[in-house]
């Protein structure tokens, strides 16, 4: 079961205009969007699909505040679709669509879709840094930052779900769909990566009461910490509301910056996440501020100390 990760997250929203404005300002590109909504994509074609919450084409809503209506997972090939259909068909309805995709729900009622991934292969350099003792990544006359530098989300990175039972959640995603636990924050939940993805996590669970079931946040990978800071600073300057960050997580090592959104979930810029393989042994730490981040900063308006007041004559 070669699941790669989330291709799209589908939302049923109450204000398409506000959501379009937000998603575009966040750095996503409308792809075939009309007055009924559509896809806002990162550079590799993964992204967020919005429809009005009353759109009859959407899967049924959860009975909570969440606007998440479906998670669309990309898999490597048709054989993987067949394997998932066979496995999940043992105890639930799996709908086959004319385009070869399948739809079903997980054990909590979150709607899922599996498709042969539509993401495009990216070929872009990572952020380059220079440090004494190491060969220069940026040679002579190559600048690190400049006004107007690009800072676009490259790829849908991960989803975090509020779920009422961690054992049920990990049972479904690990035993049935082949996800692997990379690390655990005890008191919250585990980080998971699917078999065909070496990112530290594409999925994380936080245990909550049933009435909170839904999406806590989603994240997009940026090209590096500088792009994350540039994108986040521009976003704040445009009036958008920072929720948490910038900072750097411990588990996953990824830089983070979270923002409120009109989609009823946080949108995160992330960068420079750890990679893992099957040799990795999951760590555990108690959930809390110390385990959650290496450091936490807070945005402030640009300021410069300068020479100070002129000396009195």
């Amino acid at each position: 079961m070669n699941i790669i990760g989330p291709d799209y997250l589908v939302f049923g929203v109450d204000d398409l205009v506000a959501c379009s404005e937000f998603l575009t300002a966040f750095g996503l590109t409308p792809a075939g969007v009309d007055d009924k909504g559509g896809l806002f994509e990162a550079l590799d074609g993964t992204g967020v699909i919005i429809r009005h919450k009353s759109d009859p084409d959407l899967p049924a809503p959860l009975p909570t505040a969440t606007m998440l209506r479906q998670q669309v997972y990309g898999v490597r090939g048709d054989a993987d679709i067949e394997a998932i259909a066979a496995e999940l068909g043992k105890d639930r309805k799996v709908h086959r669509l004319a385009d070869g995709t399948i739809e079903t729900t997980d054990d909590f009622g979150f709607a899922l879709k599996f498709q042969v991934t539509k993401r495009r292969k990216l070929e872009m350099p990572a952020e380059k840094i220079n440090a004494p003792g190491a060969p220069a990544q940026r040679g002579p006359n190559v600048l690190g930052v400049w006004d107007g530098m690009p800072a676009k989300p490259r790829m849908l990175s991960h989803t975090v779900l509020f779920v009422p039972d961690i054992e049920v959640a990990t049972g479904f995603y690990c035993q049935r769909l082949g996800f692997v636990i990379t690390d655990v924050l005890k008191g919250a939940g585990p980080f998971l990566r699917p078999k065909d993805n070496d990112d530290h996590h594409t999925l994380f669970f936080i245990r909550t009461p049933e009435y909170m079931k839904g999406i806590e946040h989603l994240a997009f990978h940026m090209g590096g910490p500088t792009e994350l800071m540039v994108a986040g600073s521009r976003f704040v300057k445009s009036g958008y509301e920072s929720f948490w960050g910038p900072g750097r997580h411990k588990f996953g090592s990824n830089w983070f910056w979270y923002f409120n959104s009109p989609l009823g979930t946080h949108f995160e810029y992330d960068a420079d996440m750890d990679k893992h393989d099957d040799e990795w042994i999951a760590r555990e730490a108690p959930f809390g501020p110390e385990a959650s981040q290496m450091f936490l900063l807070q945005h402030r308006e640009k300021w410069v100390p300068g020479p100070g007041p002129a000396p009195k004559e």
Partner: peptide
């Protein structure tokens, strides 16, 4: 935690409720 998704944007889409744009409360 702060509730808007952008400066002055505190209401839900229909304008019927104050909304927290963290998790849609």
């Amino acid at each position: 935690t702060p509730m808007a998704w952008k400066a002055d944007r505190y209401l839900n889409g229909e304008g019927t409720h104050l909304a927290c744009h963290s998790h849609g409360a």
